[in-house]
Amino acid sequence: MSRNTHVRRPGRRAAFAAGLVLAVGLGVSAQAAAQAAVPAKAPVKTSAAVRTVNGFNGDVVTQVADFYGAYVDAKDAPRGPDAALAKALRAHYLVPAFAKKLEAWEKTNKTDGVLRAQNVPVDWTVRGDGESREITVTHRFGGGESPTVTTDLVVKADAVDGVSDIRTKSAR
């Protein structure tokens, strides 16, 4: 007895057969809809953009990147801002004395002190050599129809204590 080991992949014939079965069972109008809904050939992606985010435990640049990533997510969550998470992140990452100083700065400037803005960036970049305690965080705001604005922040942090200062790059 011979076994057929050839494997067939579904394609146009399978789509046609599915449409034919549908037409017999549901009528000709369903066949037209089914054939319109089933593409003859699925598009093939020629290149996929693979993104990689690297970091490692104990690295101050990674910690600042983790903080900003989580903080932006909390402030711009799909179901609305998560104030409790943003507050918890601040408590975890900010040096307590700096957190109090930052709250006073926010009251005076009426803006978010971590982001140094009233809105949430569309993307951000964190740069540092891992040895310096000062890390540069670049936020890009806007996009779509609005103009793009870029803000550079200098974040002073260490791996043990956390973030002890945030300022705009031009400020000293």
Rank of each mutant, 00 (worst) to 15 (best):
R79W: 06
Y68W: 03
V122G: 07
R79M: 08
M1Y: 00
S164A: 13
V120F: 00
N57R: 14
D76A: 12
P78F: 06
V28F: 10
D73H: 07
Q118F: 03
A77R: 01
A48G: 04
T136P: 00
A97Y: 08
V163T: 06
R167A: 13
A33K: 14
A171E: 07
P78R: 08
K101D: 09
A171P: 00
V154T: 12
A15T: 13
G80T: 14
Q31C: 14
G130P: 04
F98S: 04
A65D: 13
A30G: 10
G55E: 12
H92K: 15
H6K: 03
A99V: 15
A36N: 08
V137Q: 04
L20C: 07
K75F: 02
T150F: 03
V137M: 06
L85F: 04
G113R: 01
H139G: 05
F67A: 06
A117S: 10
R12G: 08
E131Q: 13
A40T: 15
V114M: 07
A14Y: 08
A40M: 14
G113Q: 05
D161Q: 15
H6F: 07
D165Q: 13
W105E: 08
G25V: 15
L20G: 04
T148I: 11
P10L: 03
G19S: 15
N54V: 15
S2H: 04
T108K: 10
Y71H: 00
G162E: 06
G144F: 08
N54M: 14
A15F: 09
A99L: 11
T125I: 15
A65V: 14
R51F: 13
N57I: 14
D152C: 01
D112F: 01
V149L: 14
K110W: 03
L153R: 02
T138W: 02
F56G: 03
G128C: 14
V64C: 01
T148V: 12
V160G: 06
R127G: 06
P78E: 02
L22Q: 12
K41Y: 11
R116W: 11
D112W: 00
L85E: 04
